[in-house]
């Protein structure tokens, strides 16, 4: 009963009393629950609420400082999309090479781009409306195009568990709806998706499940109920 790990099936992630420290700060405190296989969950909470730390812990980039994290998906099948600022755009890499690099788990880092990977890369570029930009450098893209290129890299990666950290922040409406459609398509393909959002309306529109986090777990369940519980707490 205490362990969430008993309730998780392949493709899901179970947290039992999970704590995550970032430096001297305990960013996530005692979170228990399950991201079911094939679920699409919004993570919502104020700045500094530990949303990114939670994602990084699931991605295996931060170790839990307490509790357990049971991830049934192998590391090679997890995609983690950090915030844009992690890219150093001074490095001259073309959009095509960047997107094709999403396949490194399958191909290794030495293999060249064969016909199959080239086809996959072109398909990903087409799906993100970037075919015209294939030969451009990343630094020459608008921020919306860059975000689409990162999604295209995910398409080439083809992962089972997808972790997105504020993927729509500061994107215009057209880009947002384009990317939201991609996430919805991944959800239809039964992938497990966890997405940090700031926009409650978007969470309602896109995500059946929502986790409200403020270092501690505030609510975790069907989006409407979770958000309602959150609002009630603030009034109280």
């Amino acid at each position: 009963m205490n362990s969430a790990a008993d309730r998780v099936t392949a493709g899901g992630v179970a947290l039992t009393g999970l704590c995550v420290r970032r430096g001297d700060v305990e960013a996530v405190r005692d979170v228990t629950g399950v991201f079911a296989a094939g679920s699409l969950t919004a993570v919502i909470g104020p700045n500094g609420a530990g949303k990114s730390s939670l994602l990084e812990a699931i991605a295996g980039r931060l170790s839990p400082s307490g509790g357990t994290l049971e991830c049934t998906v192998p590391a090679s099948d997890i995609a983690y999309l950090a915030q844009v600022s992690h890219l150093d755009l001074r490095v001259p890499v073309t959009v095509f090479d960047f997107v094709a690099a999403g396949a490194w788990r399958r191909t290794g880092i030495f293999a060249g781009v064969d016909a199959r990977l080239a086809r996959q890369t072109h398909a990903a570029l087409r799906a993100t409306d970037l075919l015209d930009c294939a030969g451009r450098l990343l630094a020459q893209l608008s921020s919306g195009q860059l975000q689409r290129a990162r999604f295209a890299q995910l398409l080439v990666h083809d992962p089972q568990l997808i972790l997105l950290d504020e993927p729509f922040t500061s994107m215009d409406e057209a880009t947002t709806s384009h990317l939201v459609a991609l996430v919805a398509a991944w959800h239809r393909e039964q992938r497990t998706i966890i997405v940090v959002l700031h926009d409650r309306d978007l969470a309602r529109e896109l995500c059946p499940t929502t986790l409200v986090l403020d270092r501690k777990l505030i609510a975790w369940g069907p989006t409407e109920q979770a958000l309602a519980a959150h609002r009630w707490r603030h009034v109280a």
Partner: peptide, 18 residues
């Protein structure tokens, strides 16, 4: 030998994850 790994990890230090 290391070219691609070097370029990608320069572009994005966490690219190769774990």
């Amino acid at each position: 030998v290391i070219h691609r790994a070097l370029v990608l990890s320069t572009l994005q230090p966490g690219f190769f994850a774990e």
